[in-house]
Amino acid sequence: MSSFAKNDPKSQMAIGVAVIVIGLLFLVDNLGWVDLDFRRHLWPMALIFFGILKLLQTRATSGKLIGGGLIAAGCVTILRQTGIIDIHWHSLWPVLLIVFGVVVVFKSAEGRSAFKQGGAVPDNEFEQTEVNITSFMGAFKRRIITADFRGGEITALMGGCDLDLRQSSINGEAVLNVFSLFGGVTIKVPVDWTVVLQGTPIMGGFEEKTVPPATQGKVLYVRGYAIMGGLEVRN
Protein backbone atom coordinates (compact mmCIF):
# COMPACT_ATOMS: atom_id res chain seq x y z
CA MET A 1 0.00 0.00 0.00
CA SER A 2 1.19 3.52 -0.73
CA SER A 3 2.68 5.23 2.26
CA PHE A 4 4.47 8.33 3.45
CA ALA A 5 7.87 7.32 4.76
CA LYS A 6 10.21 9.16 7.06
CA ASN A 7 12.26 11.99 5.62
CA ASP A 8 15.90 11.57 4.68
CA PRO A 9 17.98 12.20 7.87
CA LYS A 10 20.49 14.28 5.88
CA SER A 11 17.79 16.62 4.62
CA GLN A 12 16.17 16.81 8.07
CA MET A 13 19.50 17.84 9.58
CA ALA A 14 20.12 20.51 6.91
CA ILE A 15 16.65 21.99 7.38
CA GLY A 16 16.90 21.87 11.18
CA VAL A 17 20.30 23.60 11.23
CA ALA A 18 19.02 26.26 8.80
CA VAL A 19 15.99 26.98 10.98
CA ILE A 20 18.21 27.29 14.08
CA VAL A 21 20.61 29.66 12.34
CA ILE A 22 17.80 31.83 10.97
CA GLY A 23 16.16 31.98 14.41
CA LEU A 24 19.43 33.02 16.06
CA LEU A 25 20.05 35.71 13.46
CA PHE A 26 16.55 37.13 13.93
CA LEU A 27 17.05 37.03 17.72
CA VAL A 28 20.35 38.95 17.80
CA ASP A 29 18.98 41.43 15.26
CA ASN A 30 15.75 42.05 17.21
CA LEU A 31 17.66 42.41 20.50
CA GLY A 32 19.85 45.05 18.91
CA TRP A 33 23.09 43.22 19.65
CA VAL A 34 24.08 43.29 15.98
CA ASP A 35 22.61 45.33 13.15
CA LEU A 36 22.28 42.66 10.48
CA ASP A 37 19.36 44.09 8.52
CA PHE A 38 18.44 40.41 8.27
CA ARG A 39 15.01 40.93 6.73
CA ARG A 40 16.67 42.50 3.73
CA HIS A 41 18.99 39.51 3.30
CA LEU A 42 16.34 36.83 3.91
CA TRP A 43 15.64 35.95 0.27
CA PRO A 44 19.30 35.77 -0.79
CA MET A 45 19.98 33.48 2.16
CA ALA A 46 16.97 31.39 1.18
CA LEU A 47 18.45 30.99 -2.33
CA ILE A 48 21.73 29.79 -0.79
CA PHE A 49 19.84 27.32 1.41
CA PHE A 50 17.81 25.99 -1.52
CA GLY A 51 21.01 25.60 -3.54
CA ILE A 52 22.59 23.56 -0.74
CA LEU A 53 19.52 21.30 -0.61
CA LYS A 54 19.80 20.75 -4.36
CA LEU A 55 23.49 19.86 -4.11
CA LEU A 56 22.77 17.38 -1.29
CA GLN A 57 20.12 15.70 -3.42
CA THR A 58 21.48 15.64 -6.96
CA ARG A 59 23.63 13.05 -8.68
CA ALA A 60 23.65 14.70 -12.11
CA THR A 61 26.07 17.33 -13.41
CA SER A 62 23.22 19.58 -14.50
CA GLY A 63 21.72 19.38 -11.00
CA LYS A 64 25.04 20.42 -9.46
CA LEU A 65 25.15 23.40 -11.82
CA ILE A 66 21.62 24.42 -10.79
CA GLY A 67 22.47 24.11 -7.08
CA GLY A 68 25.68 26.04 -7.56
CA GLY A 69 23.83 28.69 -9.55
CA LEU A 70 21.29 29.23 -6.76
CA ILE A 71 24.09 29.54 -4.20
CA ALA A 72 26.03 31.95 -6.41
CA ALA A 73 22.94 34.11 -7.01
CA GLY A 74 22.29 34.35 -3.28
CA CYS A 75 25.92 35.16 -2.44
CA VAL A 76 26.22 37.83 -5.14
CA THR A 77 22.97 39.46 -4.00
CA ILE A 78 24.13 39.59 -0.36
CA LEU A 79 27.54 40.98 -1.34
CA ARG A 80 25.82 43.60 -3.49
CA GLN A 81 23.40 44.56 -0.73
CA THR A 82 26.20 44.95 1.81
CA GLY A 83 28.28 47.05 -0.59
CA ILE A 84 31.20 44.62 -0.70
CA ILE A 85 30.94 44.39 -4.47
CA ASP A 86 29.47 46.88 -6.92
CA ILE A 87 27.59 44.96 -9.57
CA HIS A 88 24.36 45.80 -11.34
CA TRP A 89 21.72 43.49 -12.76
CA HIS A 90 22.44 44.61 -16.34
CA SER A 91 25.91 43.09 -15.87
CA LEU A 92 24.66 40.02 -13.98
CA TRP A 93 21.89 38.72 -16.25
CA PRO A 94 24.29 37.74 -19.11
CA VAL A 95 26.19 35.58 -16.58
CA LEU A 96 22.95 33.89 -15.52
CA LEU A 97 22.14 33.33 -19.21
CA ILE A 98 25.54 31.68 -19.71
CA VAL A 99 24.97 29.40 -16.69
CA PHE A 100 21.59 28.36 -18.03
CA GLY A 101 23.17 27.65 -21.43
CA VAL A 102 25.80 25.43 -19.79
CA VAL A 103 23.03 23.47 -18.03
CA VAL A 104 21.26 22.99 -21.37
CA VAL A 105 24.49 21.73 -22.98
CA PHE A 106 25.10 19.18 -20.22
CA LYS A 107 21.49 18.00 -20.37
CA SER A 108 21.76 17.67 -24.14
CA ALA A 109 24.82 15.42 -23.75
CA GLU A 110 23.04 13.31 -21.14
CA GLY A 111 19.99 13.08 -23.39
CA ARG A 112 22.06 11.79 -26.33
CA SER A 113 23.48 9.11 -24.05
CA ALA A 114 19.99 8.03 -23.01
CA PHE A 115 18.80 7.86 -26.61
CA LYS A 116 21.77 5.69 -27.55
CA GLN A 117 20.83 3.24 -24.80
CA GLY A 118 17.13 3.06 -25.54
CA GLY A 119 16.26 5.07 -28.60
CA ALA A 120 13.30 7.35 -29.17
CA VAL A 121 9.85 6.49 -30.45
CA PRO A 122 7.27 8.89 -31.94
CA ASP A 123 4.64 11.02 -30.19
CA ASN A 124 6.78 12.25 -27.30
CA GLU A 125 7.42 8.72 -26.03
CA PHE A 126 10.91 7.72 -24.93
CA GLU A 127 12.55 4.44 -24.04
CA GLN A 128 14.70 5.45 -21.08
CA THR A 129 15.60 3.49 -17.97
CA GLU A 130 16.52 6.72 -16.13
CA VAL A 131 15.30 10.31 -16.49
CA ASN A 132 16.99 13.66 -15.92
CA ILE A 133 14.42 16.41 -16.44
CA THR A 134 14.76 20.15 -15.87
CA SER A 135 11.82 22.53 -16.37
CA PHE A 136 12.72 26.24 -16.09
CA MET A 137 9.92 28.79 -16.49
CA GLY A 138 8.03 26.45 -18.79
CA ALA A 139 6.10 23.19 -19.09
CA PHE A 140 7.71 19.80 -19.68
CA LYS A 141 5.69 16.71 -20.60
CA ARG A 142 7.09 13.24 -21.29
CA ARG A 143 5.88 9.65 -21.48
CA ILE A 144 8.42 6.92 -20.65
CA ILE A 145 8.04 3.37 -21.94
CA THR A 146 10.50 0.88 -20.47
CA ALA A 147 10.42 -2.54 -18.83
CA ASP A 148 13.16 -1.56 -16.34
CA PHE A 149 12.61 1.94 -14.97
CA ARG A 150 15.39 2.82 -12.52
CA GLY A 151 14.41 6.33 -11.45
CA GLY A 152 16.31 9.54 -11.99
CA GLU A 153 15.89 13.23 -11.26
CA ILE A 154 13.28 15.96 -11.86
CA THR A 155 13.92 19.67 -11.31
CA ALA A 156 11.15 22.25 -11.74
CA LEU A 157 12.14 25.92 -11.30
CA MET A 158 9.18 28.23 -11.78
CA GLY A 159 7.86 25.67 -14.23
CA GLY A 160 5.91 22.44 -14.48
CA CYS A 161 6.69 18.82 -15.28
CA ASP A 162 4.31 16.00 -16.22
CA LEU A 163 5.98 12.57 -16.25
CA ASP A 164 3.86 9.62 -17.44
CA LEU A 165 5.20 6.21 -16.37
CA ARG A 166 1.96 4.26 -16.75
CA GLN A 167 3.35 2.16 -19.61
CA SER A 168 6.57 1.32 -17.76
CA SER A 169 7.58 -1.34 -15.26
CA ILE A 170 10.06 -1.70 -12.39
CA ASN A 171 12.29 -4.63 -11.55
CA GLY A 172 12.12 -4.36 -7.78
CA GLU A 173 12.69 -0.77 -6.62
CA ALA A 174 13.49 2.62 -8.17
CA VAL A 175 14.27 6.06 -6.73
CA LEU A 176 13.08 9.32 -8.28
CA ASN A 177 14.57 12.52 -6.81
CA VAL A 178 12.35 15.61 -7.17
CA PHE A 179 13.21 19.29 -6.59
CA SER A 180 10.36 21.75 -7.12
CA LEU A 181 11.00 25.47 -6.47
CA PHE A 182 8.00 27.69 -7.32
CA GLY A 183 6.93 24.87 -9.64
CA GLY A 184 4.70 21.83 -9.92
CA VAL A 185 5.44 18.18 -10.69
CA THR A 186 2.93 15.49 -11.63
CA ILE A 187 3.99 11.83 -11.81
CA LYS A 188 1.63 9.18 -13.20
CA VAL A 189 2.40 5.57 -12.28
CA PRO A 190 0.88 2.14 -13.08
CA VAL A 191 -1.70 0.65 -10.69
CA ASP A 192 0.65 -2.20 -9.71
CA TRP A 193 3.32 0.15 -8.29
CA THR A 194 3.71 0.96 -4.60
CA VAL A 195 4.63 4.63 -4.08
CA VAL A 196 6.65 5.66 -1.03
CA LEU A 197 6.99 9.41 -0.48
CA GLN A 198 10.11 10.53 1.35
CA GLY A 199 9.87 14.22 0.57
CA THR A 200 10.08 17.42 2.56
CA PRO A 201 7.53 20.11 1.66
CA ILE A 202 8.67 23.64 2.56
CA MET A 203 5.69 25.96 2.25
CA GLY A 204 4.58 23.53 -0.44
CA GLY A 205 2.77 20.22 -0.69
CA PHE A 206 3.24 16.52 -1.42
CA GLU A 207 0.12 14.62 -2.47
CA GLU A 208 -0.24 10.94 -3.28
CA LYS A 209 -3.44 9.74 -4.99
CA THR A 210 -2.55 6.22 -6.09
CA VAL A 211 -4.77 3.21 -5.45
CA PRO A 212 -3.38 0.36 -3.29
CA PRO A 213 -1.76 -2.22 -5.61
CA ALA A 214 -3.15 -5.74 -5.66
CA THR A 215 0.36 -7.21 -5.46
CA GLN A 216 3.57 -6.02 -3.81
CA GLY A 217 7.05 -6.01 -5.31
CA LYS A 218 7.30 -2.90 -7.52
CA VAL A 219 8.22 0.10 -5.39
CA LEU A 220 8.89 3.69 -6.48
CA TYR A 221 10.54 5.92 -3.89
CA VAL A 222 9.90 9.62 -4.52
CA ARG A 223 12.36 11.76 -2.60
CA GLY A 224 13.11 15.46 -2.55
CA TYR A 225 11.67 18.88 -1.84
CA ALA A 226 8.61 20.92 -2.79
CA ILE A 227 9.53 24.53 -1.96
CA MET A 228 6.58 26.87 -2.42
CA GLY A 229 5.53 24.36 -5.05
CA GLY A 230 3.78 21.02 -5.30
CA LEU A 231 4.23 17.36 -6.14
CA GLU A 232 1.40 14.99 -7.06
CA VAL A 233 1.71 11.25 -7.68
CA ARG A 234 -1.31 9.45 -9.11
CA ASN A 235 -2.39 6.60 -11.40
Rank of each mutant, 00 (worst) to 15 (best):
T77L: 10
Q198R: 13
L27T: 10
M158C: 11
W33L: 15
E110Q: 13
I15F: 11
V185D: 03
P201K: 12
E125L: 10
V131M: 01
I85A: 09
G118T: 07
P212K: 04
W89I: 14
I170G: 01
P94T: 07
V196G: 03
I48N: 02
N30M: 05
F149G: 05
I71D: 00
M1I: 12
L42H: 05
V121T: 11
S11F: 15
D123I: 09
H88F: 10
I15S: 05
L36R: 06
F50V: 09
F26Q: 04
I187D: 00
K188H: 12
L96Y: 08
A72P: 02
P44T: 10
V189I: 10
K107A: 04
N235G: 11
L79G: 09
I20W: 06
A5E: 12
F140T: 10
E208Q: 12
V191Y: 06
P9D: 15
A60D: 02
Y225A: 00
G67Y: 06
T61Y: 08
G83D: 04
V121I: 14
A46D: 07
G83C: 09
A73T: 11
I187T: 02
A109K: 11
A14P: 07
V17P: 07
S135N: 06
V99A: 10
I52Y: 01
G32H: 11
R166I: 13
G229I: 00
I87R: 02
W193S: 02
R223E: 09
P190K: 14
E110K: 09
V19I: 15
L197W: 00
L27D: 04
S169E: 11
N7F: 00
L56A: 03
L79W: 02
D37I: 05
V222F: 06
E110C: 04
G68A: 11
L231Y: 04
Q128T: 05
V21R: 03
I48V: 13
A174D: 03
L92A: 14
K6G: 14
L197G: 04
E125K: 11
H90D: 15
A156C: 13
W89N: 12
I78H: 01
F149C: 05
E130I: 00
F38S: 01
M45H: 10
N30D: 14
G151V: 08
V185T: 13
S2M: 08
S180V: 13
L31Y: 14
V121S: 13
G204D: 03
V19F: 12
T194H: 00
D164K: 09
I52Q: 01
V196M: 07
A156I: 00
I227F: 00
H41A: 10
F136S: 05
D162Q: 14
C75V: 15
I71V: 13
L47Y: 08
S113L: 14
G152M: 07
G32V: 06
L42G: 03
G118P: 05
A147F: 05
H90R: 11
G67F: 07
E232P: 04
L231A: 07
R234V: 04
T200Y: 08
T129N: 14
V34T: 08
R142E: 11
E232A: 05
G101V: 12
P94C: 09
V211I: 15
F179D: 00
T129Q: 13
F115D: 15
E232W: 02
S2W: 13
F100C: 07
I85P: 02
K6N: 13
M228Y: 15
F100I: 12
D35V: 08
C75D: 03
T194G: 02
G217E: 05
T77G: 00
K6M: 12
G204M: 03
